[in-house]
Amino acid sequence: MHDILDDYAHSNALRETSPHLKLLLGIGCILISVSSTTPVAPLFVALTLSLAILVLAKIPGRIYSRLLLVPLSFALISAVVVAFMHGAGQPLYSMQLFGTTFSLREDGAELAILLISRTFGGMCSLFFIALTTPMIEIFATLKSLHIPESVIELSMMIYRYIFVFLDQASRIHCAQVMRLGDARARSSLTSFAMLSSVLFLRSWEQGERLIVAMDSRCYDGKLGLMEEENRAAPRQIIAVALYLIATATISVLSRDISLM
């Protein structure tokens, strides 16, 4: 039912590497992908970071390939719209729909390819962060970036309860399916409403119990966070810096390459 990437973040081979370094690499690659003007650099990022995920972090290939399918649907639909709406130049392909002619032109096609490759580059970088860095370490990094205390507090509690509620939701869902709760459109709608309201009420009660539990442990508005120091080794820093510089250079050098 759920593919929570966080499970892998706790058990991958890059777990002990400094979280600051991994975040720097991921976010750097996202920024390079989104600001490059040709598909070359994003595709390079997608390829190299996928290799890093599969080889360095040792994430199973079957799971990673299924993950890559998630962004595809949105990217494809939107890219098709962009391709047909945009641009000038030679029409490559035309079709008639509802009495209007839609034609795919050179500019539009090129932009659509660029968008899909940017999305892929960005998603691979995001997957790199998600699959290698546990949330707790991201919180510690956020804290050192002076994000308001209450927001981090709230995020940590939300994080904790996501897993509790996912578990409950999937149990309720199983119970409903076993009783043919999804047999018809109408009953599946009622089942879904029942599931969400029961989930809401349970989570509310859980929240009330949480207040009591935290009060009795002298909660003063701050949850302590144990931060393990995983300092980056100099050669790791140099490797990441070299990689980012190389990717940025590729992005700059390939800015005038045109596909058509």
Binding site: H2, S150, E153, L154, M157, I158, Y159, R160, Y161, I162, V164, F165, L166, A169, H173, D182, A185, S188, L189, S191, F192, L195, S196, L199, F200, S203, W204, Q206, G207, E208, L210, I211, M214, G221
Partner: peptide, 21 residues
């Protein structure tokens, strides 16, 4: 308020990760 907001946030996340019929 904070714990209640937290469970509400988690609820929204879980709800949005479920597939609607």
């Amino acid at each position: 308020t904070l714990p209640l907001l937290a469970v509400a946030g988690a609820f929204v996340f879980v709800l949005s990760s479920l597939k609607l019929p």
